[in-house]
């Protein structure tokens, strides 16, 4: 995709995502807010797909749009009076909140627009370009990286890192970040066990007619 076309596309998607995010925090109907939150997540995942992070885009759709938003919608439907009761702070504190968030946005934008980010246009080395965006050759013996051409055997040719990021990510997750991955799994199991315990107590106490705060 041409870069200016990509920029226009990203601007449109960002505006849609920002507007739906604004709708989430200003809406009085909580169910509509959950739907708009899903739209905002979809916009973020479209950005991931557009900038060659397909794996993360798929994870975003599966986890956030498929699980988190649906979970929120379900809990909104299950709890009484949750759908409409939604008050905000008023007066001076509301004004202070607006000023705070606007200041954060303005300062961040100022820093972003005035910094010199080293971008992909600065990449001069042809091998690095091939390595990131085209194809490269990995020597199976000493694992050094060289250029790939037509005579290179097919089992030594690798796709560029941003062309096909799934294999490098899987390799990283199973070697260097293996312990972290297991720890994340443990955290998620703890969260699931905790939420099951809390909701199970809720149901049991309700059946016995006991009104206790957990």
């Amino acid at each position: 995709m041409d870069n200016s076309l990509l920029n226009i596309f990203l601007i449109v998607v960002s505006i849609v995502g920002t507007l739906s995010g604004l709708y989430v925090v200003t809406q009085t109907n909580v169910f509509r807010a959950a739907i708009c939150l899903a739209l905002s997540f979809i916009c973020v995942s479209i950005v991931y797909f557009a900038i060659n992070a397909e794996f993360l885009g798929a994870v975003q759709i599966l986890v956030y749009v498929g699980a988190v938003s649906v979970l929120m919608a379900f809990s909104i439907l299950l709890v009484k009076d949750l759908q409409t009761a939604s008050s905000t702070t008023k007066g001076f504190s509301f004004f202070l909140s607006i000023v705070t968030s606007l200041l954060i946005f303005i300062v961040l934008s100022f820093v972003i627009l005035n910094s010199d980010w080293s971008s992909e246009e600065n990449i001069k080395d042809p091998l690095v370009k091939e390595l990131l965006f085209e194809k490269y050759r990995e020597n199976p013996i000493d694992q050094t990286i060289t250029f790939a051409n037509e005579e290179t055997p097919a089992n030594e040719v690798r796709e560029g890192l941003f062309n096909n990021s799934i294999i490098p990510l899987g390799s990283l997750l199973s070697t260097r970040y293996f312990i972290s991955l297991q720890l994340i799994g443990l955290i998620i199991v703890a969260c699931v066990v905790g939420s099951i315990t809390i909701t199970k107590n809720t149901i049991e106490n309700d059946e016995e007619g006991v009104k206790e705060i957990i």
Binding site: L10, S14, G17, T18, G21, L22, V24, V25, S40, V44, V47, S101, L102, I104, F105, L108, S109, I112, L113
Partner: peptide, 9 residues
């Protein structure tokens, strides 16, 4: 900037 907008929202 999209990220900063989401953060401030």
């Amino acid at each position: 900037i999209f990220s900063a907008a989401l953060l401030s929202i």
